[in-house]
Every structure is written in C-alpha cells, then in structure tokens.
C-alpha cells in the first residue's frame, strides 16, 4: 500500500482527509442544481404554452426572454447579478438587497433558474408544437375546449416526448452549476479549488471534483433511462414479436 501511494501521482490521503468538505460541496451543488431545475420547470410550463400560442403580446414577450437568456453565457448572467447589481445604490437600499442579492447563494439560484427556465421553455414549446395534428383534431371533434385540449391531450403527450431532451438540460445545468464557485460558493468545484489553493496543488481538487460530477451524471442518466422506459413505451419501435411470442423455446417461461 505504501509503495502504491508513493507511486500514485495524486495525494490520495490529502483528498481523503478533506473528503467531508467535498460531501458538503455535493450538497451545495445538488441543492442549487435541482432547486433551480424545479423552479425553472415550473416557470417553463406557462411560458411554453405562451410561446406555442399565437398570442400577439405573450408570444414575442416570452421569445425575447428566452432569446436573451439562451443568447448569453450563464457565467455572464451570474456575474451581472452578483457583481453588477451591487453597483447600484437603489438596489443596495431596496428590500431585494438584504436577504436576497447580497447573498451569493440567492444570486446563483436566481440566475440558474432564469437560465434553465429559458431553455426548458423552448424545449417544451417544441414538444407542444410537434403534437400530432390528428390528436388535436380528435380532441376538437370530441368537443374539448382549448384548456381541455391542453390539459388532457397536448401537455401529457408533450411532457413525455420532452423527456430525452430534458435529460440533457438536467446534465447541462449540473455542469453549469460550477459557475457558483466563481461567486465564492463552496460547491463541488469550489471545494476542489479550495483544496488546490490551500495546498498549492494542480490536479487533486479538480480530479476529485470531476469524479464526483461523473457519479452524479451517471445517476441522472439512470433515472432518465427509467423514466423513458416508463413513459415513452408507446413510442418505442415494436420488437419483432413473431416466433418467440408464439412458441417460447423449451425451458424458458
């Protein structure tokens, strides 16, 4: 073991010593990522409906919002909120400053939420617009109102079809959450950079962080695979049923 540790290019004992800090970092990362995803998704549903409609005011309004937030980097948005907002005295003196914008965590949460809401809106809009025309026509023919169609036909189907694309958004958001470490939050990368800074190292902190992100992404993809199996069954290509279904081989039930 001793010789292995000497040969190994990373200072494993140092990582082990500080691993509890990394676990706190995991909590911060997961908290920020999933809270902003949840809030963003909640915002995205009404916004996507507005974007998919032909409403003359709402549609361009939401389009402008998603265009601005998808057209600028998350880092810039977060910096503007954290370093930019504080430059204005009227913001510093307002009720927004003390419990909210003076805290790095709130700045990150707000920026992340607005960012993921913009992406999710466009993603869901695509799924809504792509609803097969036949389904909508059938709903109209059976006397469904606009709201009834949305609630019973269009949205349930759109949510299901949006799952694969949304799994990418979840992973992008997790990776995007490293921005939190640039505004002093001790998320996974923040702890990694703390370790590097404290002991003047190059790799240990970053590699530990990379492994932790990798594990989280692995878990996320597993969850989404399960979701897809469950909710997208009707879209799967039919397996060849033929012989196997008619006459199972001996010994196999």
């Amino acid at each position: 073991m001793e010789t292995f540790l000497n040969w190994f290019p990373l200072d494993l004992p140092l990582i082990a010593q500080n691993f509890d800090r990394f676990l706190v970092g995991v909590r911060v990362t997961l908290g920020l990522t999933f809270l902003s995803l949840a809030l963003g998704a909640a915002l995205a549903v009404p916004l996507a409906i507005a974007r998919a409609s032909r409403h003359r005011v709402l549609n361009p309004l939401v389009w402008t919002y998603t265009y601005v937030f998808r057209g600028t980097p998350l880092l810039v948005q977060t910096y503007l909120l954290y370093y930019g907002a504080g430059q204005f005295a009227f913001i510093r003196d307002s009720w927004l400053w003390d419990p909210v914008l003076s805290q790095a965590w709130w700045c990150a949460l707000i920026a992340f939420t607005l960012n993921t809401a913009a992406y999710s809106t466009e993603l869901l809009r695509g799924a809504i617009v792509d609803t097969p025309a036949g389904e909508v026509e059938a709903a109209i023919a059976t006397g469904h109102s606009y709201c009834g169609r949305l609630r019973r036909i269009i949205l349930p189907s759109a949510f299901r079809r949006a799952i694969p694309a949304y799994s990418n958004e979840v992973i992008f958001m997790l990776h995007g959450s490293v921005v939190a470490s640039t505004i002093t939050l001790q998320d996974i990368l923040g702890v990694g950079r703390w370790l590097n800074g404290r002991y003047y190292l190059a790799y240990e902190g970053l590699i530990t962080a990379a492994v932790l992100y990798f594990i989280i992404v692995f878990a996320i993809t597993r969850v989404f695979r399960w979701l897809e199996r469950r909710y997208l069954r009707h879209l799967e290509r039919r397996r060849e049923p033929a012989a196997a279904a008619v006459a199972p081989p001996m010994g196999i039930k």
């Binding site: 002093t184 950079r193 703390w194 800074g197 404290r198 003047y200």
Partner: peptide
C-alpha cells in the same frame, strides 16, 4: 475574504479557524 491560493488563505485558515473564510 481572501484570495484563493494566496498566502492569505493559508494564514487565515491557520490563525482564524473560527472565521468563515470566503474565497475569491
């Protein structure tokens, strides 16, 4: 507040263990 990776980070964590060290 201290700059990350600076001697001040080292000193702050050594001499002010009860303080909340914020890294930039």
């Amino acid at each position: 507040g201290v700059q990350r990776g600076s001697t001040h980070q080292c000193y702050a964590e050594k001499m002010f263990p009860e303080a909340e060290i914020v890294l930039y």
